[in-house]
Write a protein that binds this DNA or RNA. Structure first.
Length: 637
RNA sequence: CGCGGGGUAGAGCAGUUUGGUAGCUCGUCGGGCUCAUAACCCGGAGGUCAUGUGGUUCAAAUCCCAUCCCCGCAACCA
């Protein structure tokens, strides 16, 4: 019986359609899972969606539908994208599934019964309009980072999990299993930032929203995200505290949880501790993969740099996007994505090196031997180097793949394709073809080429399953298992080649970029007015006036804030604004600027601010809007 | 001095564990070839390896020290 391998992605939060960065994780996990299957493991691959929480409740309310209806829609979209990417998962769990809800409730109850969870009060900085808590460090100038309003110290009844109880045991596990946290650098972060200073108890329930799994013995509370979401890895296998399913007994513990680096803490600290509390074994490995950046920035809607999997797949095909994602991401560093980079990769690696190699080889077999691959009878010293390259490539591919270095593994596979192109130049089949006496040699060269292609395609089939499949068809390969590439020469002689159909047609970069830009422009023209329409009445609520800056100075203890007295006609307002990086107090005085006069006053850094100065700002510079020589108090509209 | 990672050719990266001629991909320049998707193969140019003409050493990108810059984490953010 073959060895089991249980692999999971994090479950995707069903608040909106995932972008290509979110999609990376499923592709990465799928490639590892496929590779393990090739290597003969009995693989179980789990993915799914996390569907509870305040944010989803809010969005659903805004759209006037039930949260369940909303997550049904988004979970469907997510699943469609996972399928579009060709991911071959065994199960797709949703945290709203009945069996999951029930199991989580039992897990929560068990923790409570055995004294791991206790009821207390959660004290924190709370923003009432946003209904959320923030930490000291999240605040922007002492105010809510979402709405900019003042936060209050508030108490909320909540259940807490006694993390400290299991701390030493966890520390020991991490020490005894040096590979548990990947990559290594993240491990230090976890130990130094959290474990060493001592774990705080984790707040595990909420009363401020209702879209969650209810606590069975206290109906004011819903179970807060982590116990709900993390449990999916075992509930999906049929685990429940009172009954472990067959799948659970077979596959748990997980061999690897593939997750984003941002949630590593939850998977390497809280999740193991939960499992300890349940008395269950811990996962063997947690891999916090890096992020995919768009240019140099994190992908975000507000930056307008978001790319989606379906758009990219439509343009380049699934396998090209899978290939790009996997080889553009170094092991522990963020990768980048842009249309230009995709096109370059596509043209050089896939079209020129890989696709063209297949195409020229198949074409030669067709041209010189009527499509029949003959027995290799006439070896030459040159062949040895190619065979050695094939061996190195396979060995390197295995080593890197086993170490989760997918990009390096791909590089090993591609190096065999490159070596094969060189082999064609060295052996010059078109010269051999002119000499009837060299027919045996020509047949041997072509055989070696087809064999190298087959080996490369087997390696790359976890990365580009569709492409490998169509190559196998083109070269009529019958041997496609991993064992068949450990030794050179498993291609069946006498097989008949198919038509040489290009696998990846070259892309005209200039033309495609023009197309893309045209499409983007068209989209923007349509979208912007549609999405955020504000009526004139809404606008009229703002009292914007020209105001003359009478005096201005730095807010004590801040290098970003200026506090100014501004004459807005009938009164003088004190306004604090975050413009000190671009304006010195002395050069700000005397300007006539645009001021919102009816803003609810707030305290910033302890200084009262009664209005807001309008300014155009990006990350680096700030340009305050000026009103020329308009008299103070002049209405701006 | 909170913890950690990083600064290597125009761009993106490897090399640092175990010091010993600075390497890969893209781009660029030149050559070769014609089987193939204007593809493929070979060669050249281009680097004070952040800084300190710092320390150790026969020898430092690599080990040690100091400084500067970037990035991640810093506890509930799903």
């Amino acid at each position: 019986m073959s060895e089991k391998f249980y692999i999971t992605t994090a479950i995707a939060y069903a608040s909106r359609k995932p972008h290509i960065g979110n999609t990376y994780e499923i592709v990465l996990t799928d490639a590892i899972a496929r590779y393990k299957k090739q290597r003969g493991y009995d693989v179980y691959f789990l993915t799914g969606t996390d569907e509870h929480g305040q944010k989803i409740q809010q969005i659903a309310e805004e759209q006037g539908i039930t949260p369940q209806k909303y997550v049904d829609k988004v979970a469907g979209e997510i699943r469609d994208i996972w399928d579009l990417m060709g991911s071959d998962y065994n199960k797709f769990i949703r945290t709203t599934d009945d069996y999951h809800v029930e199991a989580v409730q039992k897990i929560f109850k068990k923790f409570y019964d055995q004294g791991d969870i206790y009821k207390s009060e959660y004290e924190g900085l709370y923003c009432v309009p946003c209904e959320s808590f923030f930490t000291e460090t999240q605040l922007v100038d002492g105010c809510c980072p979402d709405c900019g309003r003042k936060v209050e110290k508030t108490k909320e009844e909540a259940y807490f999990f006694k993390m400290s109880k299991y701390q030493d045991k966890l520390m020991k596990y991490i020490e005894e299993n040096p590979d548990f946290i990947q990559p290594e650098s993240r491990k230090k972060e976890m130990i130094n930032n959290f474990l060493k200073p001592g774990l705080q108890d984790l707040c595990v329930s909420r009363t401020s929203f209702t879209w969650g799994i209810p606590v069975t013995f206290d109906d004011k509370h819903v179970i807060y995200v982590w116990i709900d979401a993390l449990s999916n890895y075992i509930t999906a296998l049929g685990y429940s505290p009172d009954q472990k399913g067959e799948l659970y007994n077979k596959y748990w513990p997980a061999d690897i949880h593939v997750i984003g680096k941002d949630i590593l803490r939850f998977h390497t600290i809280y999740w193991p501790i939960m499992l300890m509390a349940l008395g269950e074994p811990l996962p063997k490995k947690v891999f916090g993969h890096p992020w995919l950046l768009s240019g140099t920035d994190k992908m975000s809607k507000s930056r307008g740099n978001v790319l989606y999997a379906d758009e990219l797949v439509k343009r380049f095909g699934v396998d090209a996007i899978r290939y790009y994602l996997l080889c553009e991401m170094p092991y522990a560093q963020d990768g980048t994505i842009s249309y230009e980079n995709i096109i370059t990769r596509y043209n050089t690696d896939l079209a020129n090196i890989w696709g063209n190699l297949v195409s020229r080889t198949v074409a030669m077999v067709n041209k010189y031997f009527g499509g029949t691959l003959e027995e290799p009878t006439d070896a030459d010293g040159l062949d040895g180097e190619l065979k050695a390259a094939a061996k190195d490539a396979v060995r390197g591919f295995e080593r890197n793949m086993d170490g989760l270095r997918i990009a390096d593994a791909i590089d090993c596979a591609m190096s065999l394709a490159k070596r094969s192109n060189k082999y064609i130049d060295e052996t010059m089949p078109w010269v051999l073809a002119k000499d009837e006496a060299k027919r045996g040699r020509l047949a041997t060269v072509l055989y070696n080429l087809v064999e190298s292609i087959r080996i490369t395609a087997v390696m790359l089939s976890s990365v580009m399953p569709g492409t490998s499949k169509s190559i196998f068809e083109q070269i009529s390969a019958t041997e496609t298992g991993w064992d068949s590439i450990l030794e050179f020469g498993k291609t069946q002689a006498g097989s008949k080649m198919g038509e040489a159909a290009p696998l990846f047609g070259r892309i005209d970069e200039k033309k495609m970029m023009e197309e893309i830009e045209a499409e983007l422009d068209a989209k923007e023209d349509k979208k912007v007015p549609e999405e955020n329409l504000v009526s004139i009445d809404d606008f009229a609520k703002l009292d914007i006036r020209a105001g003359k800056v009478l005096e201005s100075k730095y807010v004590e203890g801040s290098d970003k804030l200026l506090v100014s007295k501004i004459d807005v006609g009938e009164k003088v307002l004190q306004v604090v604004s975050g413009i000190a990086k671009s304006y010195k107090p002395e050069e700000f005085v005397g300007k006539t600027v645009a001021v919102i006069c009816n803003l609810k006053p707030v305290k910033l850094r302890g200084v009262l601010s009664e209005g807001m100065i309008l300014a155009a700002s990006d990350k680096k510079t700030i340009n305050v809007l000026e009103a020329g020589d308009a008299a103070p108090g002049t209405k701006i509209s």
